[in-house]
Design a protein around this nucleic acid. Structure first.
Lengths: 218, 218
DNA sequence: ATAATAGTGTCTATGAGACAGTATGCG
DNA sequence: CGCATACTGTCTCATAGACACTATTAT
């Protein structure tokens, strides 16, 4: 039982929709290794504080940003002797989807946002981790209702469609999209409508609530 | 960087098809904790030997069973202070799909096989891990070609269909199944046929090869 | 009225399931 | 020849996309 153990860390890919494209929240590392490079928010698992790796990533996000995501799931484990120059390390990566407003309010000045399609070189193997997160989201978007988590509490069906389109990268058919959303019970209609703008107001919808940590692992 | 670190282990859910139903390979623990309880094959990550957690699980399987699976993927991380009475621990779980013949030859006398739908109480949280593995396989079976990995090198389309049916738990339409398999390019026809039996021989097919570690994470 | 976006009715093409038919080996 | 299983042709129904049409607000 007394082998040297790897360093166990947790990292989060916080995805949000800004300016109509999918962006990831990164911070600039203040210290070595990879000083001044952009990196995912993350930290070390504390066995004396954390009840699980899920609890650890929530603690890290809360400490760093005062912010708790509405949806987060395990992405995968990234490991090896060389990814962190300090030690053989294991990173347990998570993906979280966050509405833009919530994220930018809570993390003013902490995060830099970059479109996931045009990332600079990141610290560690964080570029690989972001790529895996985006691939996961794109795949799941085909058959799940995750993208609702990127929108504020109330949204219109046009906004929801634009969100799906930003993720999958191509336009969707309006009638078909609405039929599908309707029949899947993804969203709940409210009796509120948008106002303002020289056009017909749109009905507002809410996402059906989901589990914070989904174990429906594809 | 000198926090106490969790114990990092790797465990594998080896799934195979026996007697027409999905079964998992388990061994009886020879020592405490959970002595004499059935458990998943697994072991501790050795930072001086292993290049990654993937390398670690392959080493463990090779050492325990002399056997290397044709397909294996990360399932998820199971963690906490109580799942192993010795220490706060992290188990990185994998799912592997294995043809029955390969598995039983290599592991004669090492493993006990149990249908995944009628498991006894397992060591640690291994019951939870098996359930997650089965759920993952059932989900992926809907839109991927994984079940080919449960069959021997060459197989008939009827065998493949029976495999899918055993996994998803309900009968499939023959014509539709063949159309789909055909057009997806899942399998490659050989010019060999079965023989024996008082009926028309069936053409033999082979699975298109897949990556050992798939990162196509749903 | 016009512009602009919301929302719907309907035609069509594509794919899945049902089912019955044909094919071909062995005894 | 007849049985058992392999394989296929075709009908039907459900679903997805295309697209045009109506609806409703502010200016």
């Amino acid at each position: 039982m007394d082998y040297p153990q790897p360093l166990v860390t947790v990292d989060a890919v916080l995805l949000t929709l800004r300016d109509g494209c999918l962006q990831v929240a990164l911070h600039r590392r203040p210290a070595e290794p990879f000083r001044d490079r952009l990196a995912l928010p993350g930290g070390v698992v504390h066995v004396d504080q954390d009840a699980s790796v899920e609890a650890a990533i929530l603690r890290v996000l809360l400490d760093k940003t005062g912010f708790r995501p509405r949806y987060i799931e395990q992405l995968g484990v990234f490991s090896g002797p060389d990814r962190d120059p300090r030690s053989w390390s294991v990173s347990i990566a998570f993906v979280a989807l966050v509405p833009e407003a919530a994220l930018t309010e809570a993390t003013e000045g902490i995060f830099h946002f970059h479109s996931v399609d045009a990332l600079p070189a990141l610290a560690f193997d964080h570029g690989t981790i972001v790529a895996a997160a985006v691939q996961r989201l794109r795949n799941k978007t085909r058959y799940s209702t995750l993208p609702t988590q990127l929108l504020p509490q109330r949204f219109t069906l046009s906004q929801l469609q634009a969100t799906y389109e930003a993720i999958v990268g191509h336009p969707l058919n309006k009638a078909a999209f609405r039929r599908k959303i309707e029949e899947e019970g993804v969203v709940v209609a409210t009796d509120a409508y948008t106002q303002g703008g020289a056009h017909r107001p749109a009905q507002l919808y809410e996402a059906r609530p989901v589990e914070l940590f989904d174990r429906t692992i594809a």
